Lab assay of single mutants.
Amino acid sequence: MEVKRLKVTELRSELQRRGLDSRGLKVDLAQRLQEALDAE
């Protein structure tokens, strides 16, 4: 999954699906999701 290409709504949805905080700026959301994906 290319996290950088996702829209903010898509980032928030993916973070919520993983039980992670979905608040913040797009750059923060993308970093949080990328870290979660790397840990999987």
Rank of each mutant, 00 (worst) to 15 (best):
M1I: 14
M1A: 03
M1L: 05
M1W: 05
M1V: 06
M1T: 02
M1D: 00
E2C: 04
E2L: 06
E2D: 15
V3M: 07
V3W: 04
V3I: 14
V3R: 02
V3T: 10
V3F: 05
V3Q: 06
V3D: 08
K4V: 06
K4I: 06
K4H: 15
K4P: 05
K4W: 10
K4Y: 10
R5A: 13
R5L: 12
R5I: 07
R5N: 12
R5F: 06
L6E: 07
L6M: 15
L6V: 04
L6P: 03
L6I: 01
L6K: 10
L6H: 03
L6A: 06
K7T: 15
K7F: 03
K7N: 15
K7C: 09
K7V: 07
K7L: 10
K7G: 13
V8H: 05
V8T: 13
V8A: 11
V8L: 12
V8W: 03
V8M: 12
V8Y: 14
V8S: 09
T9K: 14
T9I: 14
T9V: 09
T9Y: 10
T9P: 10
E10C: 03
E10G: 01
E10W: 02
E10T: 06
E10D: 06
E10Q: 12
L11C: 00
L11H: 00
L11V: 05
L11P: 02
L11A: 03
L11D: 03
R12L: 03
R12S: 06
R12A: 08
R12D: 04
R12E: 09
R12G: 03
S13E: 15
S13D: 15
S13R: 14
E14R: 01
E14M: 07
E14K: 01
E14A: 05
E14H: 03
E14T: 00
E14C: 03
E14I: 02
E14Y: 01
L15M: 04
L15F: 02
Q16T: 12
Q16S: 12
Q16P: 01
Q16Y: 04
Q16C: 06
Q16L: 11
R17A: 14
R17C: 06
R18V: 01
R18W: 00
R18D: 01
R18T: 01
R18N: 02
G19Q: 09
G19T: 02
G19Y: 00
G19A: 05
G19C: 05
L20W: 02
L20N: 01
L20P: 01
L20G: 03
L20E: 04
L20H: 02
L20R: 02
D21S: 09
D21T: 08
D21A: 04
D21R: 01
D21M: 03
D21W: 01
D21P: 10
S22W: 12
S22V: 14
S22H: 14
S22D: 15
S22K: 06
R23N: 15
R23L: 11
R23V: 12
R23E: 15
R23A: 15
G24V: 00
G24E: 01
G24Q: 02
G24W: 00
G24R: 00
L25V: 14
L25W: 07
L25M: 10
L25G: 14
K26M: 12
K26E: 14
K26N: 11
K26F: 05
K26T: 09
K26C: 06
V27K: 14
V27H: 12
V27D: 13
V27P: 15
V27Y: 04
V27R: 14
V27L: 11
V27Q: 07
D28F: 00
D28W: 00
D28L: 03
D28K: 10
D28H: 08
D28I: 06
D28Y: 01
D28N: 07
D28M: 04
L29Q: 06
L29A: 08
L29C: 10
L29S: 08
L29N: 05
L29W: 00
L29E: 09
A30K: 11
A30G: 05
A30P: 01
A30Q: 14
A30F: 08
Q31S: 14
Q31F: 08
Q31K: 15
Q31C: 12
Q31N: 15
Q31L: 13
Q31G: 11
R32K: 08
R32V: 01
R32S: 05
R32M: 02
R32Q: 07
L33T: 05
L33H: 03
L33W: 01
Q34C: 04
Q34V: 04
Q34A: 08
Q34P: 04
Q34H: 04
Q34K: 09
Q34S: 09
Q34L: 04
E35K: 14
E35H: 11
E35V: 12
E35Y: 06
E35R: 12
E35G: 11
E35W: 04
E35N: 12
A36M: 04
A36L: 02
A36F: 06
A36T: 08
A36H: 13
A36E: 08
A36D: 05
A36G: 05
L37P: 06
L37F: 10
L37T: 09
L37W: 07
L37Y: 10
L37A: 05
L37R: 08
D38F: 06
D38W: 05
D38I: 01
D38S: 08
D38N: 15
D38Q: 07
D38K: 09
A39H: 12
A39G: 12
A39P: 07
A39R: 13
A39S: 11
A39L: 10
A39C: 10
A39I: 03
E40A: 07
E40H: 02
E40I: 01
E40W: 00
E40Y: 03
E40S: 06
